[in-house]
Computed example of a mutant assay.
Amino acid sequence: MIQHPGGFWRRLLGNLLDAIIIGIPIGILGYILTGDTEGNVFTNLLNFLYYLILPVAWLGYTVGKRIVGVRIVKVGGGNVGIGVMFLRTFVSGLVYVVTLGIALIVSAFMVGLREDKRAIHDLIAGTYVTTDRPQP
Rank of each mutant, 00 (worst) to 15 (best):
R10W: 01
R10H: 04
L12A: 15
L12M: 13
L13C: 14
L17A: 14
A19W: 01
I22Q: 12
P25I: 06
P25N: 08
I26C: 03
I28W: 05
I28T: 07
L29V: 15
G30T: 01
I32R: 11
T34D: 09
E38P: 00
F42E: 11
N44H: 03
N44S: 14
F48A: 14
L49N: 01
L49D: 01
L52S: 06
W58L: 13
L59M: 12
L59C: 11
L59V: 08
G60Y: 03
Y61E: 01
V63D: 11
G64F: 02
G64E: 04
K65P: 00
R66I: 06
R66K: 15
I67Y: 05
I72Q: 05
V73D: 13
K74F: 07
K74R: 15
V75I: 14
V75D: 12
G77Q: 11
G78H: 01
G81H: 12
V84I: 15
F86E: 01
F86L: 04
V91I: 13
V91G: 00
V91D: 00
V91P: 00
V91N: 00
V91Y: 00
S92N: 11
G93E: 08
V95M: 06
V97D: 04
L100S: 13
I102K: 05
L104S: 12
L104I: 04
I105E: 09
V106M: 05
R114F: 02
D116G: 10
D116Q: 04
D116S: 12
R118V: 09
H121Q: 13
D122R: 06
L123Q: 11
A125P: 09
G126W: 01
T127D: 12
T127Y: 09
Y128F: 12
T130V: 10
D132R: 07
